[in-house]
């Protein structure tokens, strides 16, 4: 009898496991639900028109400039309308010649961001890293 009483007393001292499991499962469900997938973001660095860098000795020759226009309905390369696939090829040709070319991307205010990103992406693929954005009003 004494042994039985001791056992009963020991069982009463145990923590309430079932409630604890409930809470822990609720926490788990919360974290699983609020977990978001990581978005693989690429960052395309561009320069904005501004004051020239302060260098003591100015460069002898200005860097060669490639003029690309991003309009709402077409792309232009050196003022000539061009398809995106052809523009990519032309940029790659210039990139293979010299990666120091500066690309002046003149973007129309009505062009979508995707069209601008297409050109920036093509420039990066061609190895052209000096990218400048100018707004066409």
């Amino acid at each position: 009898m004494a042994r039985k009483k001791r056992n009963l007393g020991g069982e009463a001292a145990e923590p309430p496991m079932s409630s604890m499991i409930d809470v822990v499962f609720l926490l788990l469900i919360y974290f699983v639900y609020t977990q978001k997938e990581i978005i693989p973001e690429a960052h395309l660095a561009v320069n904005l028109p501004g004051p020239p860098p302060k260098t003591q000795t100015p460069p002898k020759e200005p860097p060669p400039v490639i003029d690309v226009r991003v309009l709402s309905n077409e792309y232009q390369f050196m003022n000539v309308p061009i398809r995106l696939s052809s523009l990519r090829e032309r940029l790659e040709q210039f990139g293979m010649k010299d990666s120091d070319y500066t690309v002046m991307i003149k973007t129309d205010v009505y062009a979508t961001n995707q069209r601008l990103v297409n050109v920036l992406d093509a420039c990066k693929k061609a190895g052209l890293n000096s990218l400048n954005i100018v707004t066409l009003y």
């Binding site: 693989p40 973001e41 960052h43 395309l44 561009v46 320069n47 904005l48 028109p49 501004g50 990103v117």
Partner: peptide
């Protein structure tokens, strides 16, 4: 960005590579 005296920005895009 320009008016605040900065001249470099990064445009974010979804990478498919």
């Amino acid at each position: 960005v320009k008016k605040s005296g900065l001249y470099k920005v990064k445009i974010s895009a979804l990478s498919e590579k």
